[in-house]
Design a binder for these strands. Structure first.
Lengths: 203, 203
DNA sequence: CCTCTTAGCTAATTAAAATTAGCCTTATTA
DNA sequence: TAATAAGGCTAATTTTAATTAGCTAAGAGG
């Protein structure tokens, strides 16, 4: 019973490291601790395993999007939190965001797999953009709009501010995805970025 | 003679769309207009084709890095250009940078292929980081330092400013790489970003 | 305790792709 | 002008990976 889940887990790990086309069912089986033919007791093909992973991604996304989370939309909950937020708090929040993106095991594998497969499937491309552009930008924009309305930030285009806040976080994350040893360096830059952002835009 | 080059060209195109593991030598041959076995008159294996592409990338990089170009280091040439640069000029430059990255055929395929293969090879990871992080940031940092020294920009950390200038360009580019129909939207945001950046940091 | 299902295995089988063999034409050149 | 090399082809061959067949042990439930 557990095997069925374990297969998805192992497969996602492998797909996120090498990409679908470079992973063999034998490797998945080995990771699970069974032989390749036994996989077929659980999924009817390699493609079906991939599809199940995607399906799981969509479910998870829908579930989490409904709740509060990084890409969520709870402007109102958060607005209280960020009302009169200090620079240090902003730093803590940015680093939290970054660290979650970078270290959450599922998030991380999911992102790497999408990175690899994004050009081969339109749906994956859209999923990627939604998760790492549309939603974060939408969310941050809402937040910044509130901060502006509350007089905490200069009255500039909140959408552009969101882009300027988020893009460096994203870029540093991609660096760490491919060169994990650069995390310390990235964190340093990240902190400087947020402090400078805060200083420049604070009213 | 020409065939040998054409093979690399076709292979790079295919690798950048599907990734090495999902491309078959027959497809490469078809693109070139010959049959698969004829490929072996030019390269001893599929892997050798991939390696030749990498080799070409390195050569090109070394050649271009020596000269002036996007990721180059000619602070001094450019400093004259940017001395007392207007906001409009900055916009034109940013959009030029973005458009080059996005539309230059070789640049574009190269980037997509690296995007797909970056996690499977340390060398590729480093190449990617160098090309799309280290070098642009280093270059922009130098430029901004000059602008600061010349009193055109506020005296903030130039390295962070470079990150804040470049990261949105990069992020928007990745969006267009996977969803080319969003280019107009991206260009709009890009222009707003640069104008706002310019306004915030200008002395 | 019998039987049926589940989930594993080994040993095929199939399918697909990479690569090799070996032939043919053209073009160069000694 | 004969020899040779380059570069193409078709027809194998090899390799590799996915999938199927069919056996078996374990355990659930009547």
């Amino acid at each position: 019973m557990d095997t069925k889940k374990k297969i998805l887990e192992v497969a996602l790990t492998l797909f996120s490291e090498k990409g679908y086309g470079n992973v063999y069912v034998g490797q998945i089986a080995e990771g699970v601790g069974i032989k390749a033919p036994s996989l077929y007791k659980h999924y009817k093909s390699k493609q079906a395993i991939f599809d199940a992973i995607l399906e799981e991604m969509r479910n998870r996304y829908d579930k989490e999007a409904a709740h509060l989370n990084i890409t969520g939309n709870d402007f109102f909950v958060d607005s209280k939190v960020y009302n009169n937020i200090s620079e240090d708090e902003l730093v803590k929040m940015g680093i939290g965001l970054f660290s979650f993106f970078l270290h959450d095991e599922y998030e991380c594998k999911f992102r790497k797999m999408l990175t690899i497969e994004q050009f081969s499937d339109k749906e994956l491309a859209e999923l990627f953009s939604r998760q790492y552009f549309n939603e974060p930008i939408k969310y941050q924009t809402g937040l910044l709009q509130l901060l502006i309305m509350q007089g905490n930030m200069k009255n500039e285009d909140a959408n552009v501010m969101a882009l300027q806040f988020f893009a460096p976080i994203y870029l540093l994350m991609t660096v760490c995805d491919r060169e994990p040893q650069r995390e310390a360096e990235a964190l340093q830059m990240l902190e400087k970025h947020i402090r400078q952002f805060s200083r420049m835009y604070k009213e």
